[in-house]
Nucleic acid binder design. Sequence first.
DNA 1: GCGGCAGTTGATCGGTTGATCAATTCGGCT
DNA 2: AGCCGAATTGATCAACCGATCAACTGCCGC
Lengths: 192, 192
Amino acid sequence: MPSTPAPAQSRLPGEARRAAILEAATALARADGLAALTLRRVGERAGVASGLVAHYVDGMDALVAEVFTGISAGERAEVAAIDRLAPLVRTLTDGSRDAVTLVWVQAWAAAPGNAALAAAVRAEMDAWQALLEECLVAAGAADPAPIARTLLGMIDGVNAHALAGWRERREHADLLLRSLAAMLGVEVDALS
Amino acid sequence: MPSTPAPAQSRLPGEARRAAILEAATALARADGLAALTLRRVGERAGVASGLVAHYVDGMDALVAEVFTGISAGERAEVAAIDRLAPLVRTLTDGSRDAVTLVWVQAWAAAPGNAALAAAVRAEMDAWQALLEECLVAAGAADPAPIARTLLGMIDGVNAHALAGWRERREHADLLLRSLAAMLGVEVDALS
DNA sequence: GCGGCAGTTGATCGGTTGATCAATTCGGCT
DNA sequence: AGCCGAATTGATCAACCGATCAACTGCCGC
Protein backbone atom coordinates (compact mmCIF):
# COMPACT_ATOMS: atom_id res chain seq x y z
CA MET A 1 0.00 0.00 0.00
CA PRO A 2 1.41 3.39 -0.95
CA SER A 3 1.81 5.36 2.22
CA THR A 4 2.20 9.05 1.43
CA PRO A 5 0.12 9.91 -1.67
CA ALA A 6 -2.59 7.44 -0.64
CA PRO A 7 -4.59 4.97 -2.74
CA ALA A 8 -7.52 7.32 -3.48
CA GLN A 9 -10.34 4.86 -3.72
CA SER A 10 -12.86 6.46 -5.98
CA ARG A 11 -16.42 7.25 -4.97
CA LEU A 12 -16.89 6.01 -1.44
CA PRO A 13 -20.23 6.32 0.36
CA GLY A 14 -20.19 9.36 2.61
CA GLU A 15 -19.74 7.56 5.87
CA ALA A 16 -16.83 5.50 4.59
CA ARG A 17 -15.16 8.55 3.08
CA ARG A 18 -15.46 10.40 6.34
CA ALA A 19 -13.86 7.46 8.13
CA ALA A 20 -11.04 7.33 5.57
CA ILE A 21 -10.36 11.04 6.02
CA LEU A 22 -10.29 10.64 9.77
CA GLU A 23 -7.89 7.75 9.48
CA ALA A 24 -5.59 9.74 7.21
CA ALA A 25 -5.68 12.68 9.61
CA THR A 26 -4.87 10.40 12.52
CA ALA A 27 -1.91 8.85 10.73
CA LEU A 28 -0.65 12.30 9.83
CA ALA A 29 -0.95 13.54 13.41
CA ARG A 30 0.84 10.46 14.71
CA ALA A 31 3.73 11.09 12.34
CA ASP A 32 4.05 14.87 12.37
CA GLY A 33 1.94 16.08 15.28
CA LEU A 34 -1.40 17.85 15.56
CA ALA A 35 0.11 21.01 14.09
CA ALA A 36 0.47 19.22 10.75
CA LEU A 37 -3.29 18.92 10.38
CA THR A 38 -4.38 21.27 7.60
CA LEU A 39 -7.16 20.80 5.08
CA ARG A 40 -4.68 20.44 2.23
CA ARG A 41 -2.26 18.08 3.92
CA VAL A 42 -5.02 15.82 5.22
CA GLY A 43 -6.54 15.82 1.75
CA GLU A 44 -3.25 14.89 0.15
CA ARG A 45 -2.70 12.08 2.64
CA ALA A 46 -6.19 10.77 2.04
CA GLY A 47 -5.83 11.10 -1.73
CA VAL A 48 -8.65 13.60 -1.88
CA ALA A 49 -9.23 17.27 -2.64
CA SER A 50 -8.99 19.73 0.23
CA GLY A 51 -12.58 20.75 -0.29
CA LEU A 52 -13.76 17.24 0.41
CA VAL A 53 -12.01 17.22 3.76
CA ALA A 54 -13.78 20.43 4.68
CA HIS A 55 -17.04 18.92 3.47
CA TYR A 56 -16.85 15.95 5.82
CA VAL A 57 -15.55 17.82 8.84
CA ASP A 58 -17.18 20.43 11.05
CA GLY A 59 -14.23 22.82 11.02
CA MET A 60 -10.58 22.15 11.69
CA ASP A 61 -10.95 22.65 15.44
CA ALA A 62 -13.41 19.77 15.58
CA LEU A 63 -11.16 17.58 13.42
CA VAL A 64 -8.17 18.24 15.66
CA ALA A 65 -10.22 17.42 18.75
CA GLU A 66 -11.53 14.23 17.19
CA VAL A 67 -8.07 13.09 16.06
CA PHE A 68 -6.66 13.80 19.50
CA THR A 69 -9.35 11.76 21.19
CA GLY A 70 -8.77 8.88 18.81
CA ILE A 71 -5.03 8.79 19.41
CA SER A 72 -5.34 9.03 23.17
CA ALA A 73 -8.09 6.43 23.31
CA GLY A 74 -6.00 4.14 21.13
CA GLU A 75 -3.11 4.40 23.52
CA ARG A 76 -5.38 3.64 26.45
CA ALA A 77 -6.66 0.56 24.66
CA GLU A 78 -3.09 -0.62 24.11
CA VAL A 79 -2.21 -0.58 27.80
CA ALA A 80 -5.61 -1.46 29.24
CA ALA A 81 -4.60 -5.09 29.63
CA ILE A 82 -1.74 -4.22 32.00
CA ASP A 83 -3.22 -4.37 35.47
CA ARG A 84 -0.04 -4.21 37.57
CA LEU A 85 1.26 -0.74 38.34
CA ALA A 86 4.98 -1.30 37.86
CA PRO A 87 4.87 -2.60 34.28
CA LEU A 88 2.23 0.00 33.45
CA VAL A 89 4.40 2.88 34.62
CA ARG A 90 7.45 1.41 32.90
CA THR A 91 5.61 0.98 29.62
CA LEU A 92 4.28 4.54 29.75
CA THR A 93 7.75 6.00 30.30
CA ASP A 94 10.00 3.81 28.15
CA GLY A 95 9.98 6.21 25.20
CA SER A 96 8.05 3.95 22.88
CA ARG A 97 5.24 6.51 22.78
CA ASP A 98 7.04 9.75 22.12
CA ALA A 99 4.79 10.46 19.15
CA VAL A 100 1.77 10.34 21.43
CA THR A 101 3.52 12.54 23.98
CA LEU A 102 4.02 15.18 21.30
CA VAL A 103 0.31 15.03 20.55
CA TRP A 104 -0.52 15.55 24.21
CA VAL A 105 1.83 18.49 24.57
CA GLN A 106 0.47 20.10 21.43
CA ALA A 107 -3.06 19.54 22.69
CA TRP A 108 -2.30 21.36 25.96
CA ALA A 109 -0.69 24.19 24.04
CA ALA A 110 -3.56 24.56 21.58
CA ALA A 111 -6.40 24.05 24.06
CA PRO A 112 -6.72 27.74 25.06
CA GLY A 113 -7.64 28.59 21.47
CA ASN A 114 -9.78 25.55 20.65
CA ALA A 115 -12.72 24.91 22.95
CA ALA A 116 -13.57 21.55 21.40
CA LEU A 117 -10.01 20.36 21.88
CA ALA A 118 -9.98 21.61 25.48
CA ALA A 119 -13.09 19.57 26.23
CA ALA A 120 -11.57 16.52 24.54
CA VAL A 121 -8.39 16.90 26.60
CA ARG A 122 -10.35 17.04 29.84
CA ALA A 123 -12.40 13.99 28.86
CA GLU A 124 -9.29 11.98 28.00
CA MET A 125 -7.61 13.01 31.24
CA ASP A 126 -10.64 11.75 33.13
CA ALA A 127 -10.54 8.46 31.24
CA TRP A 128 -6.86 7.99 32.00
CA GLN A 129 -7.51 8.80 35.63
CA ALA A 130 -10.19 6.11 35.76
CA LEU A 131 -7.81 3.60 34.20
CA LEU A 132 -5.12 4.34 36.76
CA GLU A 133 -7.60 4.27 39.62
CA GLU A 134 -8.51 0.69 38.80
CA CYS A 135 -4.89 -0.38 39.15
CA LEU A 136 -4.47 1.66 42.31
CA VAL A 137 -7.49 0.12 43.97
CA ALA A 138 -6.23 -3.33 43.05
CA ALA A 139 -2.95 -2.36 44.74
CA GLY A 140 -4.81 -1.43 47.90
CA ALA A 141 -5.26 2.32 47.64
CA ALA A 142 -8.02 3.65 49.86
CA ASP A 143 -8.40 7.06 48.15
CA PRO A 144 -7.09 6.52 44.62
CA ALA A 145 -8.36 9.69 42.90
CA PRO A 146 -5.71 12.20 43.98
CA ILE A 147 -2.95 9.65 43.59
CA ALA A 148 -4.15 8.81 40.08
CA ARG A 149 -4.21 12.46 39.07
CA THR A 150 -0.78 13.18 40.51
CA LEU A 151 0.77 10.06 39.03
CA LEU A 152 -0.63 10.90 35.61
CA GLY A 153 0.84 14.37 35.86
CA MET A 154 4.20 12.90 36.83
CA ILE A 155 4.21 10.52 33.89
CA ASP A 156 3.21 13.19 31.38
CA GLY A 157 5.74 15.66 32.75
CA VAL A 158 8.62 13.22 32.65
CA ASN A 159 7.65 12.21 29.12
CA ALA A 160 7.41 15.83 27.99
CA HIS A 161 10.87 16.52 29.35
CA ALA A 162 12.23 13.46 27.59
CA LEU A 163 10.67 14.81 24.39
CA ALA A 164 12.55 18.09 24.90
CA GLY A 165 15.94 16.50 25.32
CA TRP A 166 16.39 14.54 28.53
CA ARG A 167 16.56 10.87 27.74
CA GLU A 168 17.49 9.11 30.98
CA ARG A 169 14.43 6.93 30.90
CA ARG A 170 15.35 4.20 33.32
CA GLU A 171 16.23 6.41 36.24
CA HIS A 172 12.94 8.25 35.78
CA ALA A 173 10.91 5.05 35.87
CA ASP A 174 12.69 3.78 38.99
CA LEU A 175 12.20 7.08 40.81
CA LEU A 176 8.58 7.26 39.70
CA LEU A 177 7.93 3.82 41.12
CA ARG A 178 9.60 4.74 44.40
CA SER A 179 7.38 7.81 44.52
CA LEU A 180 4.30 5.81 43.74
CA ALA A 181 5.06 3.36 46.51
CA ALA A 182 5.42 6.27 48.93
CA MET A 183 2.11 7.78 47.85
CA LEU A 184 0.45 4.41 48.37
CA GLY A 185 2.25 3.79 51.64
CA VAL A 186 3.61 0.42 50.55
CA GLU A 187 7.02 -1.08 49.77
CA VAL A 188 8.39 -0.69 46.25
CA ASP A 189 8.52 -4.46 45.77
CA ALA A 190 4.76 -4.66 46.22
CA LEU A 191 4.21 -2.99 42.85
CA SER A 192 5.99 -5.45 40.58
CA MET B 1 0.67 54.24 31.80
CA PRO B 2 -1.45 53.02 28.92
CA SER B 3 -1.07 49.27 28.78
CA THR B 4 -2.27 47.97 25.42
CA PRO B 5 -1.49 50.55 22.70
CA ALA B 6 1.78 51.53 24.40
CA PRO B 7 3.31 54.97 24.94
CA ALA B 8 5.44 55.00 21.79
CA GLN B 9 8.44 56.95 22.94
CA SER B 10 9.83 58.63 19.86
CA ARG B 11 13.34 58.12 18.58
CA LEU B 12 15.12 55.82 20.99
CA PRO B 13 18.75 54.83 20.48
CA GLY B 14 18.95 51.43 18.85
CA GLU B 15 19.87 49.44 21.90
CA ALA B 16 17.10 50.96 24.00
CA ARG B 17 14.52 50.39 21.27
CA ARG B 18 15.55 46.78 21.00
CA ALA B 19 15.15 46.40 24.75
CA ALA B 20 11.71 48.04 24.63
CA ILE B 21 10.60 45.69 21.87
CA LEU B 22 11.82 42.70 23.83
CA GLU B 23 9.99 43.91 26.90
CA ALA B 24 6.78 44.37 24.93
CA ALA B 25 7.14 40.89 23.42
CA THR B 26 7.71 39.41 26.86
CA ALA B 27 4.65 41.12 28.31
CA LEU B 28 2.59 39.88 25.37
CA ALA B 29 3.83 36.30 25.77
CA ARG B 30 3.11 36.38 29.49
CA ALA B 31 -0.46 37.52 28.83
CA ASP B 32 -1.39 35.52 25.72
CA GLY B 33 1.31 32.89 25.31
CA LEU B 34 4.19 32.43 22.90
CA ALA B 35 1.77 31.78 20.04
CA ALA B 36 0.66 35.43 20.23
CA LEU B 37 4.10 36.66 19.18
CA THR B 38 3.81 38.04 15.66
CA LEU B 39 5.64 40.98 14.13
CA ARG B 40 2.47 43.03 13.96
CA ARG B 41 1.18 42.29 17.44
CA VAL B 42 4.54 42.89 19.09
CA GLY B 43 4.85 46.14 17.14
CA GLU B 44 1.41 47.26 18.25
CA ARG B 45 2.18 46.45 21.87
CA ALA B 46 5.47 48.34 21.66
CA GLY B 47 3.85 51.27 19.87
CA VAL B 48 6.01 50.74 16.83
CA ALA B 49 5.66 49.68 13.20
CA SER B 50 5.94 45.99 12.42
CA GLY B 51 8.94 46.65 10.23
CA LEU B 52 10.87 48.02 13.17
CA VAL B 53 10.35 44.85 15.14
CA ALA B 54 11.73 42.85 12.25
CA HIS B 55 14.64 45.28 12.01
CA TYR B 56 15.72 44.70 15.62
CA VAL B 57 15.18 40.96 15.70
CA ASP B 58 16.93 38.14 13.90
CA GLY B 59 13.77 36.39 12.76
CA MET B 60 10.71 35.42 14.74
CA ASP B 61 12.17 32.08 15.81
CA ALA B 62 15.02 33.90 17.56
CA LEU B 63 12.61 36.34 19.20
CA VAL B 64 10.44 33.53 20.52
CA ALA B 65 13.50 31.76 21.91
CA GLU B 66 14.76 34.93 23.55
CA VAL B 67 11.39 35.75 25.10
CA PHE B 68 11.07 32.21 26.41
CA THR B 69 14.49 32.34 28.01
CA GLY B 70 13.70 35.69 29.64
CA ILE B 71 10.43 34.46 31.12
CA SER B 72 11.91 31.23 32.43
CA ALA B 73 14.99 32.97 33.82
CA GLY B 74 12.76 35.55 35.50
CA GLU B 75 10.81 32.81 37.21
CA ARG B 76 14.02 31.19 38.39
CA ALA B 77 15.21 34.48 39.83
CA GLU B 78 11.92 34.84 41.71
CA VAL B 79 12.31 31.53 43.53
CA ALA B 80 16.09 31.44 43.81
CA ALA B 81 15.97 32.73 47.38
CA ILE B 82 13.95 29.73 48.56
CA ASP B 83 16.47 27.18 49.70
CA ARG B 84 14.18 24.70 51.46
CA LEU B 85 12.58 22.05 49.28
CA ALA B 86 9.09 22.01 50.74
CA PRO B 87 8.27 25.71 50.28
CA LEU B 88 9.96 25.62 46.88
CA VAL B 89 7.78 22.77 45.64
CA ARG B 90 4.68 24.36 47.13
CA THR B 91 5.40 27.70 45.49
CA LEU B 92 6.00 26.07 42.12
CA THR B 93 2.69 24.21 42.24
CA ASP B 94 0.33 26.70 43.87
CA GLY B 95 -1.09 27.98 40.59
CA SER B 96 0.37 31.45 40.84
CA ARG B 97 2.46 30.78 37.74
CA ASP B 98 -0.05 29.35 35.28
CA ALA B 99 0.96 31.93 32.69
CA VAL B 100 4.52 30.66 32.81
CA THR B 101 3.32 27.07 32.60
CA LEU B 102 1.50 27.89 29.37
CA VAL B 103 4.72 29.35 28.00
CA TRP B 104 6.59 26.16 28.88
CA VAL B 105 4.00 23.92 27.28
CA GLN B 106 3.94 26.02 24.12
CA ALA B 107 7.72 25.95 24.03
CA TRP B 108 7.75 22.14 24.14
CA ALA B 109 5.13 22.02 21.41
CA ALA B 110 6.94 24.49 19.15
CA ALA B 111 10.47 23.21 19.73
CA PRO B 112 10.40 20.57 16.95
CA GLY B 113 9.97 23.36 14.38
CA ASN B 114 12.23 25.99 15.94
CA ALA B 115 15.83 24.97 16.55
CA ALA B 116 16.73 28.13 18.48
CA LEU B 117 13.79 27.60 20.80
CA ALA B 118 14.69 23.95 21.27
CA ALA B 119 18.19 24.94 22.37
CA ALA B 120 16.79 27.58 24.70
CA VAL B 121 14.44 25.04 26.27
CA ARG B 122 17.27 22.61 26.91
CA ALA B 123 19.42 25.36 28.43
CA GLU B 124 16.61 26.47 30.75
CA MET B 125 15.91 22.90 31.78
CA ASP B 126 19.58 22.52 32.69
CA ALA B 127 19.48 25.75 34.70
CA TRP B 128 16.40 24.60 36.59
CA GLN B 129 18.02 21.26 37.25
CA ALA B 130 21.07 23.02 38.73
CA LEU B 131 18.82 25.14 40.94
CA LEU B 132 17.00 22.08 42.26
CA GLU B 133 20.25 20.18 42.75
CA GLU B 134 21.50 22.84 45.15
CA CYS B 135 18.47 22.39 47.36
CA LEU B 136 18.70 18.61 47.11
CA VAL B 137 22.35 18.56 48.14
CA ALA B 138 21.52 20.81 51.07
CA ALA B 139 18.85 18.28 52.03
CA GLY B 140 21.44 15.50 52.01
CA ALA B 141 21.06 13.93 48.57
CA ALA B 142 24.10 11.94 47.50
CA ASP B 143 23.25 11.73 43.77
CA PRO B 144 20.98 14.74 43.15
CA ALA B 145 21.01 14.84 39.33
CA PRO B 146 18.44 12.16 38.50
CA ILE B 147 16.21 13.23 41.38
CA ALA B 148 16.35 16.84 40.22
CA ARG B 149 15.41 15.87 36.68
CA THR B 150 12.56 13.65 37.77
CA LEU B 151 11.24 16.16 40.28
CA LEU B 152 11.26 18.88 37.65
CA GLY B 153 9.31 16.65 35.29
CA MET B 154 6.79 15.92 38.03
CA ILE B 155 6.29 19.60 38.79
CA ASP B 156 5.88 20.57 35.14
CA GLY B 157 3.52 17.69 34.46
CA VAL B 158 1.28 18.45 37.41
CA ASN B 159 1.22 22.12 36.43
CA ALA B 160 0.40 21.31 32.81
CA HIS B 161 -2.51 19.15 33.95
CA ALA B 162 -3.73 21.92 36.20
CA LEU B 163 -3.59 24.23 33.20
CA ALA B 164 -5.83 21.84 31.28
CA GLY B 165 -8.50 21.62 33.92
CA TRP B 166 -7.50 19.81 37.07
CA ARG B 167 -7.21 22.28 39.89
CA GLU B 168 -6.73 20.25 43.07
CA ARG B 169 -3.48 21.99 43.89
CA ARG B 170 -3.00 21.13 47.52
CA GLU B 171 -3.31 17.38 47.18
CA HIS B 172 -0.78 17.47 44.35
CA ALA B 173 1.75 19.39 46.44
CA ASP B 174 1.37 17.05 49.40
CA LEU B 175 1.76 13.96 47.25
CA LEU B 176 4.72 15.49 45.44
CA LEU B 177 6.45 16.13 48.76
CA ARG B 178 5.77 12.60 49.92
CA SER B 179 7.28 11.37 46.66
CA LEU B 180 10.27 13.63 47.01
CA ALA B 181 10.94 12.35 50.53
CA ALA B 182 10.83 8.79 49.20
CA MET B 183 13.27 9.59 46.39
CA LEU B 184 15.62 11.14 48.94
CA GLY B 185 15.14 8.35 51.43
CA VAL B 186 14.14 10.70 54.25
CA GLU B 187 11.02 11.44 56.28
CA VAL B 188 8.52 13.98 54.89
CA ASP B 189 8.97 16.22 57.91
CA ALA B 190 12.65 16.67 57.08
CA LEU B 191 11.74 18.80 54.05
CA SER B 192 9.82 21.60 55.74
C1' DG C 1 20.72 76.86 9.97
C1' DC C 2 21.74 72.94 7.77
C1' DG C 3 23.52 68.47 6.16
C1' DG C 4 23.74 63.76 7.15
C1' DC C 5 22.60 59.67 9.14
C1' DA C 6 20.39 56.64 12.52
C1' DG C 7 15.84 55.55 13.53
C1' DT C 8 11.44 54.63 11.69
C1' DT C 9 7.50 53.92 8.68
C1' DG C 10 4.08 51.35 6.13
C1' DA C 11 3.12 49.52 1.74
C1' DT C 12 4.17 45.44 -0.48
C1' DC C 13 5.47 40.60 -1.73
C1' DG C 14 5.00 35.65 -1.63
C1' DG C 15 3.21 32.18 1.06
C1' DT C 16 -0.12 29.46 3.91
C1' DT C 17 -4.37 28.88 6.19
C1' DG C 18 -9.70 27.66 6.68
C1' DA C 19 -13.63 28.06 4.26
C1' DT C 20 -16.91 28.35 0.32
C1' DC C 21 -19.25 26.93 -3.83
C1' DA C 22 -20.31 26.44 -8.77
C1' DA C 23 -19.08 22.97 -11.81
C1' DT C 24 -18.04 18.29 -12.87
C1' DT C 25 -17.97 13.29 -12.57
C1' DC C 26 -19.46 8.93 -11.75
C1' DG C 27 -22.23 4.84 -9.79
C1' DG C 28 -26.45 2.67 -9.40
C1' DC C 29 -31.24 2.46 -10.60
C1' DT C 30 -34.82 2.45 -13.70
C1' DA D 1 -29.25 3.37 -22.54
C1' DG D 2 -29.94 7.16 -20.00
C1' DC D 3 -30.41 9.88 -16.09
C1' DC D 4 -30.48 11.58 -11.33
C1' DG D 5 -28.39 12.62 -7.30
C1' DA D 6 -24.56 11.94 -4.32
C1' DA D 7 -19.71 12.39 -4.31
C1' DT D 8 -15.92 15.12 -5.63
C1' DT D 9 -13.15 18.75 -7.57
C1' DG D 10 -10.31 22.81 -7.64
C1' DA D 11 -10.42 27.62 -8.21
C1' DT D 12 -11.31 31.34 -5.30
C1' DC D 13 -11.73 34.46 -1.19
C1' DA D 14 -10.34 36.94 2.86
C1' DA D 15 -7.27 36.85 6.56
C1' DC D 16 -2.94 36.51 8.48
C1' DC D 17 1.90 35.37 8.49
C1' DG D 18 7.28 36.80 8.12
C1' DA D 19 10.16 39.43 5.57
C1' DT D 20 11.83 43.25 2.67
C1' DC D 21 12.86 47.87 1.35
C1' DA D 22 12.37 52.51 -0.59
C1' DA D 23 10.98 56.52 1.45
C1' DC D 24 10.52 59.61 5.23
C1' DT D 25 11.75 62.05 9.77
C1' DG D 26 13.91 64.25 13.24
C1' DC D 27 17.98 64.76 16.11
C1' DC D 28 23.15 65.88 16.52
C1' DG D 29 27.21 67.92 15.19
C1' DC D 30 29.07 71.26 12.44
